[in-house]
């Protein structure tokens, strides 16, 4: 593990939006350039919020990258812009300026439909408060990403069940989220994030709602699964107890890396 500033790399990327293979066109004004090896790359990302009628910068020209299979932690005090950056990296928010490349392809400037498709096919999310669907069993919650891709529900349930068994939740496959402990819920959420082996996993304070032991267990699983699926991972955290799982830690302050 190293604690670094992300620094700036010499970029020679191919600026082609992803997601176009499903019939979605290129965003206008996007150009192509040479490929890089980064799984995810953000260049000069800036974002401001208008608060009380005044524009307040949250991210100020951030450069960031994650390599394939790498696990990067974003740390820093509250309000430093970690979650906003994670949202932009996960295509949940659009930046005011800058470029975002996923596997060398431009993904900023995509339409909402295209961004949704990229999230569905290439990104897994782990949320602080698990964000499970309360009406669905653990197995069905984990099945969601598979069935969104068109897999029949029965087959998706089989795969989800197998993954839950691996995660020590064989007795909770049919349990509703309301009947599970926070640690179990986060493991289900983790299973949902990795079930379709996404290229990128984004986790927003995955251990914040868990006790130390459960947090360690969840991080251990996340670490194992991302290594197994060769997924790149970005984790926003305040929790120094889990820093051991990071390949690199980027500390943020006032919308910039330290």
């Amino acid at each position: 593990m190293t604690t670094t500033n992300t620094g700036t790399t010499a970029y020679t990327t191919t600026d082609v939006p992803v997601g176009v293979q499903h019939g979605h066109g290129l965003a206008s004004g996007q150009k192509t350039s040479a490929m890089t090896n980064h799984a995810l790359e953000a260049k000069a990302i800036a974002k401001s919020y208008v608060i009380g009628g005044q524009s307040r910068p949250v991210l100020d020209g951030i450069d960031f990258h994650v390599d394939p299979g790498e696990c990067v932690f974003l740390a820093g005090p509250s309000g430093s812009g970690k979650t906003t950056l994670l949202s932009i990296l996960g295509l949940l928010l659009t930046s005011d300026s800058g470029q975002l490349l996923l596997k060398g392809r431009r993904v900023d400037g995509l339409t909402e439909v295209e961004r949704t498709l990229v999230r569905r096919e290439r990104i897994g999310f782990v949320f602080q408060r698990f964000q499970l669907i309360n009406g669905l069993t653990a197995e069905d919650n984990v099945s969601i990403p598979l069935t969104m891709d068109g897999m029949p529900l029965r087959e998706a349930r089989d795969r989800a069940g197998a993954l839950l068994c691996r995660m020590g939740l064989e007795d909770h496959r049919k349990a509703l989220p309301t009947s599970m402990s926070p640690g179990q819920c986060q493991r289900v959420a983790l299973a949902r994030a990795v079930i379709n082996e996404p290229e990128l996993i984004l986790a927003d304070e995955p251990t914040a709602a868990l006790d130390g032991k459960s947090g360690q267990a969840v991080m251990e699983l996340l670490h194992q699964l991302t290594k197994e699926f060769a997924s790149s991972t970005v984790v926003v955290t305040h929790d120094p107890r889990i820093y051991q799982y990071a390949d690199r830690i980027c500390e943020m302050e006032n919308g910039k890396f330290k």
Partner: peptide, 16 residues
């Protein structure tokens, strides 16, 4: 609303 936001985040589109 939280669940719908989650579904939107993980890739369910408006039409779905």
């Amino acid at each position: 609303v939280g669940e719908y936001a989650t579904l939107r985040a993980i890739g369910l589109d408006e039409r779905e």
